[in-house]
Amino acid sequence: MDRNRKQRQLLALPYVLWSIAFTVIPLLVIIRYAVTDKDGHFSVSNLLAFSTPVNAKAFLISLEIALICTVICVLLAYPLVMVVRRLRISRMTFMLFFLIMPMWMNFILRMLALQMILSNNGILNMIVTGLGFQPLALANTKAAVIIGVVYDYLPFMMLPIFNTISDIGEDVLEAASDLGASPLSVFFRVILPMSLPGLKSGITIVFVPSMTSFVIADILGGGKIQLIGNIIEQEFTRSTNWNLGSGLSAALMLFMLVGMSFTIKDDILPSHPVKDEEGEKKEAPGGEGISRRAVL
C-alpha cells in the first residue's frame, strides 16, 4: 500500500513542477522585490507604502467594490440556483451552458461591449428613454464598474453553490417540509447551511479577483476609479518601480490571506471529513475541487 501511495504521489509531479516554476519562484521574486529598495538594500518601506493616503484610498475603494459585488453575486446566485435545480436534466445542462457561454468570449471584448451598452448614448439609455424615463448616467461611474465585475464573476459564484445544492437529496427537503417547515425555513435552515461550502468557495473565487482587478475599472470606470490593482499596474508598467509594485502586491496578498483564512481552511481541510474504507479523506460536498470541475 505504501508503494501504491508513492506511485500515486508521483502523478502529482507535473503539477508540482508547474507550480514551482509559475507560482513559487515568481512569488519569491515578488517578495524579494517587495522587501528591497531600488538599490537592492533591505527595506520595508514598499510594504508600508500601503498606508499612504493615495494607496489606502484605492485599497478601500477596491474593498468596497469587491464586497458589494460579492454580496450582489450571492443574492443573484441563490434564486437562480433554486430555479435551475428544479429543472429536468436536459434543461439544467442547457441553463448551465448558457451561463458559461459568455466566458468563451474574450474578457476585454465583453467589457468593451458592456461599455457601449452603458454609455450615455448606449443601448441601455435608448431603452430607458424610449420608455419615457430620464437617461441613466452610468458610464464611467463606480456603478458601471460594479455591473462589470458582477457580470464577469457571477458564474464563478453560481457554479459552486449549484454543485452543493444539487447534492442535497430531494428526500431531505421533503422530510423538512413534512415536519412542518415552511419553504422559507427549508431554505434558511436546510439548504443554506448545507450549501455553505459552495458559498465559501464562491466567495473566495469572486472576492479575491474582484479585489485585484484593474482592467474593468479602466474600461468601465473611464479611468476615474482608481483601484489598488490600477496602482500596482502603474508601478510595473509606467513608473517601472517594481519594488513598490511588488511591495503593494505582497501587502495585498497578506491582507487577503488573513481575510480569507476562514474559507481557505475549509477548502483544504473539510470541516466534516468522511472516512472511506481506505482511510482516505473524502472531500466535503461542494469544495473547490467540485466547483472547478464544473467551471472547466
Binding site: V54, K57, A58, N230, I231, Q234, R238, S239
Partner: peptide
C-alpha cells in the same frame, strides 16, 4: 509626475 498622476486618478 508619477506620484501626482496617482493622486489625480485616486
Amino acid at each position: 509626475l508619477n506620484e501626482l498622476w496617482k493622486e489625480l486618478r485616486g
